[in-house]
Design a protein around this nucleic acid. Structure first.
Lengths: 184, 184
DNA sequence: AACAAAGCGGACCAATGGTCCGGTTATGTG
DNA sequence: CACATAACCGGACCATTGGTCCGCTTTGTT
């Protein structure tokens, strides 16, 4: 038996509450707020997720699970089968969409993982995927480095700043252009 | 009269103390520690610098002042006169050196400016400089975007991670390579 | 039904950024 | 030099917040 029924129920309640509050109150929410909104004791939040960082990582993983499956076994060009260059563009486009729809979560996640954000499992997975594709497309480049550079653009502030209201497509477009230069 | 003698003395003492502690204890230092080490009341730190963020910005500005002068009126290729592509490379090399020598400060600075780090005066200046050069070298690119991408690499964790002990030149080298691709 | 393990809540703790104010000191003016 | 005053100082104090603890409750199994 892996998790008692009440525990599972509370876990879901906490995730939902955090989602809600992030959407309505931005990235600065406290765990007391989350606990209250989930109608749960503060201790429960920590028992389920270990820390603020743990909660944010869990939230991000939840949002990223579809993308993950698409990468591993979905249709090309996101999934396997297409040439690396196309897969890179598809992946970054997907990330752009995911980021655009989850800015507060992204910001909160960064804030929590301030120390050593490269250890986050989601980040690690994305980086490995990208590094691998880059190494195939351009074996002469420092793939790990370039992968970090590209993922670095998904900083919440960065995305917000580069997504002006009058031109919401700018971020994704400029990112594609940048990648185009690198793979040319 | 702009600042009383004791005030100026305390300002210097605080900056020195912060420098010291960053070097010896890393980026996680508290303002109480800084105040104690500077032999000054905590209130004084806040009166002089407004906030933790203000102190970190002041420290960074202090470290960056030489670079700033070199950019504005120093010899080429860092200063004016050289072709944009060369100035970009020179600038990023200079930044790499500055970052390598001030990792703790950089980390502490990021931590403090977490909210809206693009408002930091030093960042703004660097970005404007870089954007301007990129626009000259490659008018077809989104210069502001690319400038953010390049500056994004100077995240303290990133620099640390991409500067392995057995190959300390990797960061600067890979960054130059990346720039080479973009300006080709 | 009974029991043990897992879970729960919320009082509690420590750290920390930031504020306040009564007392002190530098400064320039008469 | 003496004095008035504006600037300054220190550190006690405050509020917030991530995280811990422990006595009581729920779950699920035998």
């Amino acid at each position: 038996m892996s998790e008692r029924a009440d525990a599972a129920r509370n876990r879901r309640a906490i995730l939902r509450a955090a989602e809600d509050l992030l959407a309505t109150h931005g990235a600065g929410i406290s765990l007391d707020q989350v606990a209250a909104h989930a109608q749960v004791g503060k201790g429960t939040v920590f028992r389920r997720f270990g820390s603020r960082t743990g909660l944010m990582q869990a939230l991000l993983q939840e949002r990223a699970v579809q993308l993950r499956e698409a990468l591993e076994s979905g249709p090309a060009p996101l999934g396997p089968g297409a040439p690396p260059a196309e897969r890179i563009v598809a992946f970054l486009d997907a990330l752009s969409r995911l980021a655009a729809g989850n800015l507060s979560l992204l910001a909160a996640h960064e804030r929590s993982c301030a120390t050593d954000r490269h250890a986050d499992p989601t980040y690690v997975r994305w980086h490995a995927h990208l590094e691998n594709l880059i190494a195939q497309a351009r074996p002469d480049l420092d793939a790990a480095f370039v992968a970090h550079a590209l993922l670095g653009m998904f900083d919440a502030d960065m995305v917000r700043r580069l997504t002006p209201q009058e031109d919401p497509g700018r971020f994704a477009r400029s990112l594609r252009q940048l990648v185009g230069e690198l793979l040319a």
